[in-house]
Design a protein around this nucleic acid. Structure first.
Lengths: 229, 229
DNA sequence: TTATCGCTTGTGACAATGTCACAGAGCGCA
DNA sequence: TGCGCTCTGTGACATTGTCACAAGCGATAA
């Protein structure tokens, strides 16, 4: 049960289906859902584990990734405010194990909904249904892109794209947005590669003058070189 | 409209939701669906294309794959009798482009359902809903496995597993089931690798006495060697 | 029969990426 | 200052992908 008006307001802001789905949906949603806060690094679900509840993220981000036998891993996608991990939903609804790991990257605040409610609202609300299927399609699309990148894109291009993407979404002012706080290991994990390979590629980029590397940070000097990849 | 009783019977045999979902679902399904036959090699959907209808396969198999810039490709999964490509469904319901290619591997006979009906039955039938979500979860699981294999499994092991899998499902008698009719190129496409690499690995397997290769066929001599991979 | 054509297979050289082992550099902290 | 931890750098080697090209095999036409 969610009684706090400010929480209700935030949920409505984050999730359009609550805004547009009508009074009935909102009422049953607030009656049935709970808000939970998970600390950073909390493991939400293990590969092969069962999930019993669907989380709708209000704040923070969770990362969904695959872990290989050798310890290498790759990030599949992130679940951010206003989103939900619907792979969870489909696992809930078909009682299958979750096929990856999910972990809190930051502290995560989320509304938690039971399997029964997820199912019930599918019949009663077209807005909820649209939300769920939009999320399903989005995640499938993201995973397909990852697969495409892994198989068919050269790693230097993928690394360049990742650096540019990070620079774009860094929240600081223009002056510091060119300095990324990130380790080689973190980049390798995003790409599903290994740290040494990332180190080598960064050295090559550095030779061309595209960037400067330091311990735990990368300064982009000439993004156009990276864009050319 | 599907009036032919034998077609109705076959559909009910193939799809449990029609058997268990009640008279009302059956009636509306047979009233709204059509049966279509597509020739082998027919392209069902291109990468980035829109899909407007959901196909429920009655006979034959369709293959869903990703195609890279360089011409390499990888099979993601197959849609066989009793199944449906629900990635299509989620694309339909969220009006997103389909993120891969789908092609008829054999002649395919399928019941075709409009976007509106897919949506309508989600509200009206829990059996239809369960069917759709079971398919979604299954496909997601398959794609996740492919990604896992590509990133974390050595290719010789994947090739060995593929050969054993083919041998198991080959429909002939025990004597000939050890002879696979398949080209190196076809194996490469399954694995998302290249023909030369498959050729090399097969040569290595041949050296160990695990199999014999001939033009367009592979004879398994000692499956236990492959299982050890 | 022979010529020819298309598909399939074989192979060597090289490029890209992953793995392993290990060394050193930077940084916080006792 | 010295210790311990994380992060980075590097060489050697294994695996996989790419490219170029040759050869084999089987069907069909001449």
């Amino acid at each position: 049960m969610i009684q706090d008006f400010s929480q209700q307001r935030r949920l409505i802001q984050c999730f359009a289906f609550l805004r547009d789905g009508g009074e009935a949906l909102r009422e049953t949603f607030f009656a049935q859902a709970k808000v939970a806060t998970l600390p950073a690094d909390h493991i939400i679900c293990r590969d092969g584990g069962q999930c019993s509840q669907l989380a709708l993220v209000l704040a923070g981000t969770a990362r969904v990734y695959k872990l290989g036998e050798n310890g290498r891993e790759i990030t599949l996608y992130r679940v951010e405010a206003g989103q939900s991990c619907v792979v969870t939903a489909s696992c809930i609804l078909s009682r299958r194990p979750f096929p990856a790991f999910a972990i809190c990257e930051t502290e995560v605040e989320a509304a938690v909904v039971s399997q029964a409610d997820v199912q019930r609202w599918l019949t009663s609300s077209s807005y909820w249904r649209d939300f769920i299927f939009a999320q399903v399609a989005e995640r499938i699309g993201e995973v397909f892109s990852v697969l495409d990148a892994v198989l068919f894109q050269p790693l230097d291009r993928r690394l360049a794209a990742l650096l540019l993407h990070r620079a774009r979404r860094s929240p600081q002012d223009a002056a510091t947005s060119r300095i990324l706080q990130v380790t080689h290991q973190e980049l390798a994990v995003e790409l599903g590669s290994s740290r040494e390979v990332v180190t080598r590629l960064l050295r090559d980029f550095e030779k061309t003058g595209a960037l400067l590397t330091g311990r735990g940070q990368i300064e982009l000097l000439d993004p156009s070189i990276l864009e050319a990849r």
